[in-house]
Design a protein around this nucleic acid. Structure first.
Ligand SMILES: [Mn+2]
Ligand SMILES: [Mn+2]
Ligand SMILES: [Zn+2]
Ligand SMILES: [Zn+2]
Lengths: 121, 121
DNA sequence: TTTGAAAATGATAATCATTTTCATTTGTGA
DNA sequence: TCACAAATGAAAATGATTATCATTTTCAAA
């Protein structure tokens, strides 16, 4: 188990929202930070292990990371133009919790996205 | 746009539940079917386009496919042993619809998965 | 039946994110 | 200073997915 390089976390913070490992790496390069891609991957992974960062997936399967701190939310995405609206998931949170309880699962997380065609398209 | 090779759909049916493109391909090879990996990918993709098949993602980001025909449901997956429970998503359905209405989206679909550690693990 | 355009196919190469290897550097306590 | 563990990163390996492109199949019109 390696400890996370603090500059990786700091960069992810500044990235605003989401960022993939590749993006974090490129960002650090542009800012003149000297770091290897391997270390970026390792650091993000251990941040996930430590539950400091959430791991999500882009539509194409690429892993993206976001600070846990930020308010948990979901997305409403337009399949045509890609426009995204951040939405609350109150109902989901309860649903996830009750389903997990009902089946004896612990350490529970969830994903939920809504997609459709927006009014402009 | 290519049409789906019917043997691919037939194989996915027999795969029982989920299968990745690679798995469908290997399955067909074992059964002596002569088909190219490319065609498997293309067929699955057009089945998804035609809404005959759902596209989901494994924990590691790999794309997996499942027949839509089956009653719409969601999954509660154990991150440790992979055990999966199919669950109802009544609350989700309403949530997705109301969120979409509220923001003027139409042709709406959604994904929702819950993951955690099961009681056996 | 012959013909030709369009669709389908699949071998191969290209992409690209992620992981593995492994040699080197850095930190740290005795 | 010394010995040893942890961290680092360059380079190669891996593996899924996609792009190319030449060949084959389909099929309707002539
Ligand atoms: Mn939520
Ligand atoms: Mn649902
Ligand atoms: Zn739109
Ligand atoms: Zn389990």
């Amino acid at each position: 188990m390696s400890r996370s390089n603090p500059r990786v976390l700091s960069t992810l913070e500044r990235a605003g929202g989401f960022a993939s490992a590749q993006e974090v790496y490129k960002l650090m390069q542009r800012e003149g930070e000297k770091i290897g891609l391997t270390t970026v991957y390792r650091s993000l992974q251990s941040l996930v292990d430590d539950k400091i960062v959430d791991l999500l997936r882009r539509e194409d399967g690429e892993a993206i990371y976001r600070l846990c701190g930020e308010k948990h939310h979901h997305h409403l995405v337009c399949k045509s133009c890609g426009d995204t609206v951040e939405i609350e998931g109150g109902a989901i949170e309860k649903w996830a919790k009750s389903m997990a309880d009902e089946h004896g699962f612990r350490d529970v997380g969830h994903t939920a996205e809504i997609f459709g065609i927006c009014s402009k398209c």
